[in-house]
């Protein structure tokens, strides 16, 4: 898949977010239980995003004794950015799953969970190092 194909697919996906009726134009309506399961998965990702955003707030409020101002700002912003990425991905994945179910196609696969896991692991290791060695204290 060339870069232009990927860009086109991305543009198409974003258009789909804002014109959801187009999803219902194609394929046949799946059993509503599958759509509800898809919705619950969407909500689970939203909760993940909320946890990341809440974590961003918590780092700034509760680690004042451990971290310097800039370490706190960097960690908070990383967590908040992770929350936003999670949210956008939740909407995108929900639309794509819904469309795949209508078309009878395979559900979309994604490397996002792995990337998110790596990000959280990096942040956790950084936190342990900072708190343990008091580099920033």
């Amino acid at each position: 898949m060339s870069v232009f194909d990927q860009l086109g697919a991305g543009r198409d996906a974003v258009r789909l977010w804002f014109a959801p009726d187009r999803v219902q134009e194609e394929g046949e309506t799946p059993d509503y239980r599958f759509s509800l399961a898809n919705e619950r998965t969407f909500l689970a990702w939203i909760r993940t995003a909320l946890a990341l955003i809440g974590g961003g707030f918590a780092v700034d409020q509760f680690l004042t004794d451990h971290l310097t101002h800039w370490a706190r700002v960097a960690l908070s912003l990383a967590l908040l950015a992770g929350g936003v990425a999670c949210t956008l991905r939740a909407v995108n994945h929900w639309v794509r799953c819904e469309r795949a179910m209508r078309r009878g196609a395979n559900l979309p696969v994604s490397r996002f969970p792995a990337v998110l896991a790596a990000l959280v692991a990096v942040i956790a290791v950084a936190m342990v190092a900072l708190v343990l060695f008091g580099w920033a204290g």
Binding site: W17, P20, S35, I46, G83, C86, T87, A90, V91, V95
Partner: peptide
Amino acid sequence: PALLPASSALGVAACMVALA
């Protein structure tokens, strides 16, 4: 139950982005 309206999904996303 009907499909989750995409306006709701986008509204939820907007709330998250606003908080962040």
